[in-house]
Amino acid sequence: MDSLILEISARGLDRYEPVKFGTTTIGRALDNDIILSDPTVAPHHLQIVQHSDQSIELTNLAEINPTQVDRQPIDTSVIGTLPVTIEIGRVQLRLLARDHAVAATRPLAASRSNRHPFGHAYWALILVLICLLVSGTDFFLNSYNTFKWSDLLKYLLRETILTIGGFVLALSILERLLVNRWEIRQMLTSVCLIYLLFTAAMFLANNLDYLLSASWPSTLLHFGWYLLIVPGAITLYLVHISHLPRNRSLMLALLIASPIAMPSILQSSQMQLLLDNFSPAAKYHSNLSYMNWHLRKRVDIDSFIEQARQLEAGEAAD
């Protein structure tokens, strides 16, 4: 039985080929033992020889893009310990012993208990209904004219259904390209959870703004949401649902989150002020709250005037 396995990584997917005892050739030509179709691989690129004394000898056969072992180009190299990383062209290989340990099996989301949000299909449906309820409530609480069902339905369609649906579709297509699977139900659950989390966080931040008579809570949320929470949520999804490695998941998450995050951050009033350093408008705390919970003490008019004397003008722009 072949004692060596060659792990071949290409386009995010790994495949495994046994390396037979004796001589194994690798290259793009069809007369090789292991054929790699990448154009940066030479027709005959690498030769692996397993000797009877268990030593393993690698020989580079390519003039263009010579073989590298652990990032060092080689002509001939005798391998000491496994695993060893080999690069031929842009294809990354790892030479593994057959008894090389594999990562633990990760359960599919669908096999989790029915109480898990990613378990049963009805969770996605429940979450969609909750999102519609929350969105509808938001519409209701911001309606100051006579209520009309047609207005509510238009709002739900525009702000909730199309938005969530659009994100689900786009991210699902991306996932299909990455891992060759459709996970519509899990994606729907994830997007709904993120939507609900965002709504709750905004509510909390606005009330914190009023409590503290400050704007940093909502500013912190705004930046934190797009720079940390969205990439973090996408990373968690890719690791636990798509079962991608952590590092790759993080990189993909940043890649996916950037086109969402950057326009929102750049267009925010806080970033505009940072970039532009000047605003002709007065940025005062205009938020009002029915509960009227605030930590600032109430002052009388005389005390206000006395404190107001200390107010300096703002900074000039650069």
Binding site: S213, N277, F278, S279, P280, A281, A282, K283, Y284, H285, S286, L288, N292, H294, R296, K297, R298, V299, D300, I301, F304, Q307, A308, L311, E312, A313, G314, E315, A316, A317
Partner: peptide, 27 residues
């Protein structure tokens, strides 16, 4: 021509009522 505004917030008691007030100044 002008600097940025600088604003501060107070809760002022005006004729037994509380008012959330902002005072902004630029030069």
């Amino acid at each position: 021509i002008v600097s940025n505004f600088n604003c501060e917030t107070w809760f002022i008691e005006v004729s037994t009522q509380e008012m959330k007030s902002n005072l902004c100044r630029r030069e």
